[in-house]
Design a protein around this nucleic acid. Structure first.
Lengths: 133, 133
DNA sequence: GCACTGCTTTACGTTAACGTAAGAGAGACG
DNA sequence: CGTCTCTCTTACGTTAACGTAAAGCAGTGC
């Protein structure tokens, strides 16, 4: 368990993912583990990328979108337009998320109303039951 | 185009969905159009339910979750146990939604941080460009 | 030498929410 | 009667992000 290179199992334990997931991410060009014989070895760069991938997923990004964002992190000599486009994608995503949150809050309020209803109905029913004894 | 009953096409035009979607919702027991011969006729109850379905989808609910919520809206003369169970489902759902909202808020904050980063990178880059002229 | 463990590739399976195509009945119109 | 338009049912196709066998190397322990 070198500090620099980790096996697939060490990665899985460290980041709580399956081997399949790591191989899948590699096939999608999100990770680039090196090979020792036939085995994969994940570098600290892969670990940094994986962290960002998992974070991106929590944000609700698709893997394809995440790949674009990773390119943003990676960039050194890219074109400004490309940069701007990726940035725009992220800003749009933020806006979507805020809208989604607002609607979610609305839905929560609605549901709370329904539940007050439900409580009332149940209370009435239980009263009737007691009265009927 | 009666006020009370609408054909599938009228529904599609009114709510911007496809016939396939309406039939699919019927197959999932989200809608209950009546039949005139072999044709479907959607009542105002179906329209009310469809509105709630579309709203639920915007909230990010699955169709199955929406069906449960619709049942909550529908309730009137159910049995107490059934009522209690449905109520519990709804309460659980509310809790899930609040958790989801909290995570979403966290994600939004994180993403905001990332974007500040992005802005910085872009600013630096543009500075370099100017300096490089 | 042989079993065991861990890794590999290949490739079909899964879920949600429809899309899409095929083939047919049914009423309206000219 | 023929054609058009609308609708119907049936059923396979699609996308994302992996899950889940199946079958086989490779190193390690005994």
């Amino acid at each position: 368990m070198s500090e620099e290179q980790m096996t697939i199992r060490e990665m899985c334990d460290a980041y709580d993912v399956t081997p399949r997931t790591l191989r899948f991410y590699e096939s999608k060009e999100l990770l680039f583990p090196i090979r020792e014989g036939q085995k994969r070895l994940f570098t600290k760069r892969d670990r940094a990328r994986l962290k960002l991938i998992l974070r991106g997923k929590r944000f609700g990004f698709s893997l394809e979108e995440i790949r674009q964002l990773l390119d943003l992190y990676d960039m050194g000599d890219q074109q400004a337009t490309q940069l701007q486009r990726t940035y725009d994608v992220a800003r749009q995503r933020l806006q979507d998320m805020e809208e989604q949150r607002d609607e979610l809050n609305e839905a929560i309020d609605d549901l709370r109303e329904q539940l007050k209803w439900g409580e009332q109905i149940i209370a009435d029913f239980e009263n009737d039951l007691k009265a009927a004894q």
